[in-house]
Design a protein around this nucleic acid. Structure first.
Lengths: 197, 197
DNA sequence: GCCAAAACGATACCGAGAGTACCGTTATCC
DNA sequence: GGATAACGGTACTCTCGGTATCGTTTTGGC
């Protein structure tokens, strides 16, 4: 995902702090001033780094935005809590915490635009999305095995039902989701996929 | 939303076909070559129109993209069908028809990016979103009045649950939703908000 | 018929931003 | 000590959004 050069060899090695400084600069700029303020010059200046140093690590702006987004919205794993409902709450609450960080909506919007514009980013993005959705699928499959999730649900469709509403409210409705909304979602989704018992 | 000059008066009137040709050009370009191909010069050339003619109608690219998106994803109204489940299917199927048109994912991505970048577009966008969600809210409220939707659901949250999954699958998961997915959604949402009866 | 007004196409232009090339310098491996 | 490669700095090219200006054309009002 990151730079091209990983193996050791002759030549001056990368200065590790540069990578972190650049990613932080992207997150700061997008939070404080929005997407349009994230120019390569502004990022370089904010990070105290030269522009070529950025291009040695990422092939272009789209990839940089993707990398910055990944540091924010990482893949989270939920352990077996013995109860589908509890695990559902855990997923929603964890996502809620991330989406409530200021600037996340703008960051996601930039990510979506970057993926749509640049086919090169799509591969890494696809892997990220399927990994994230995979965690939710696991919870559903545990629930089916356990018996507190209906055996006849389409797991992939149900995973989308879980993942979509929070991000929709943030990015499309342009409102920061709150705990009440997450709780309502948990109720509705539990009825949607839970065993009738 | 469109041009500034509506009232009649002296001077050469707008040529109506220009507006339509420009909007069509945007949709064609985004469908055939993606978002990055939608440059003002390309739009002008494709529409057989001069660039100033575009700027007489929309103040900037963001507004143009919003206008083009609105011609595609209009607000749809669902009549009272006497049954919540049937109306739910009607909403999902109608949305499905639109989202399956090639290029719609790219168009939506462009819209999201435009809104996030340009505060000026936000007002019109907000009105559009709340109008669209309002139609879904109406269906839920009819259902509550009728008795086939639980009276204790949060209508706004439920509307998000209905609207989010299709668009999420298209824009985030990067897959065109199919009829099977829409049917699964209808099943799950009906259990989520339908009366226990 | 004539004039003001405003849209039209065409073109040239400006400024900003993405990305690249080249510099001399510095750090590391062999 | 030499090859390698990252570093900051700078200057550059190219593309794109947006504006200005031109002469031309089409309308309404007198």
């Amino acid at each position: 995902m990151a730079g091209v050069r990983v193996e050791r060899g002759p030549g001056r090695p990368r200065q590790e702090h540069v990578t972190g400084a650049v990613l932080s600069a992207v997150l700061e700029l997008v939070t404080e001033q929005g997407l349009s303020a994230v120019t390569m010059d502004a990022v370089a200046a904010r990070a105290g780094v030269s522009k070529p140093a950025i291009y040695r690590r990422w092939p272009g702006k789209h990839e940089l935005v993707l990398a910055a987004a990944e540091t924010r919205i990482g893949v989270l794993a939920v352990p077996d809590l013995g109860d589908f409902r509890a695990e559902l709450r855990a997923v929603l609450d964890a996502r809620l915490d991330v989406y409530r960080i200021p600037g996340t909506a703008r960051l996601l919007a930039g990510l979506i635009a970057a993926v749509e514009e640049e086919g090169a980013v799509r591969g890494a993005y696809q892997r990220y999305v399927s990994r994230t959705m995979g965690e939710t699928r696991k919870i559903l499959e545990r629930g089916i095995a356990r018996g507190d999730v209906r055996a006849d649900v389409d797991v992939q469709a149900a995973a989308t039902l879980v993942a979509a509403p929070l991000i929709f409210r943030l990015v499309i409705e342009q409102q920061v989701p709150d705990a009440r909304f997450a709780a309502d979602l948990a109720d509705m989704i539990a009825r949607a996929v839970g065993s009738p018992a």
